[in-house]
Design a binder for these strands. Structure first.
Lengths: 141, 141
DNA sequence: CTGTATCCGATCTGATACTG
DNA sequence: CAGTATCAGATCGGATACAG
């Protein structure tokens, strides 16, 4: 038996890389904790909004349409906890708190761009597929 | 005023591309419908499992650890609806139904690899950040 | 200005039982 | 084999009111 290759490819680029990874017993998809962060209704928007400079609480609240104060706070706390956001408190009156995306968060944002590209390329196709599917379902009834 | 450039970059690669996109009034992140698909607890696993050939319902049920029959059905239906899975019914006794990822789904899987790379690169850092944060919180109380 | 606390409805998921 | 139906628990997100 040949010696097992314990080194995993440092960068996965193709489905073959992923398959190789699977055969080596590694998971080819991001762990749940990361997917949850990405999936949260507001997290990525906050990363985007703080990517180009520090943003204050109220600025974010105004910028991100539809977000409630509660969810803004919760999402900011979660992002800070994960090291995706740096929170700076200026001890002034009135208080001033600024949030800024960390380098790690910027890399995440950049990684998400491939997903954005996929969406832009295929969203029409997905929408069409949904319509066909739904039409079939209502027709069956 | 210069004429507005209505053409969007076909492929976003850098944060500058994203910034340009924002200035043109486009959203730099995937739409909610796509994020939801990605975030679902089982969807991506099913895409991965059906990426290399047709899989039967029961095969998937055995392969994907922890999934309930109900969630398998629901997730398969959603993926089929979005055009990410092709469902083939063989009218035999007993019934045989096969699912296979579509080319579009394979591209999605491939796009997810950048996210997987990010996770592999930063997951230790995220975990450490969480521990620090939680330690601070319990210390404050 | 920057949050917290509480409540509530909607959605997601799992367990279990049943079916063509 | 490949589902469907029903119920219940957990989680998510929004509305509102309050506070340092």
């Amino acid at each position: 038996m040949s010696q097992r290759n314990t080194a995993v490819p440092p960068q996965l680029k193709t489905l073959d890389d992923a398959q190789l990874m699977i055969e080596q017993g590694f998971c080819p998809i991001p762990p749940r904790e990361i997917l949850d962060r990405i999936a949260g209704k507001w997290a990525i928007q906050i990363v985007v909004s703080t990517a180009h400079g520090p943003m204050r609480f109220t600025e974010l609240e105004r910028l991100i349409e539809g977000i409630s104060r509660r969810m803004l706070t919760l999402t900011l706390r979660n992002l800070e906890r994960d090291g995706l956001l740096e929170r700076t408190v200026h001890p002034t009156v009135p208080p001033k708190v600024e949030y800024q995306a960390t380098p790690m968060a910027l890399e995440l944002y950049e990684a998400m761009l491939t997903l954005t590209n996929w969406s832009r390329k295929h969203s029409a196709c997905v929408a069409a597929s949904r319509e066909r599917y739904d039409a079939r379902q209502t027709a069956d009834v």
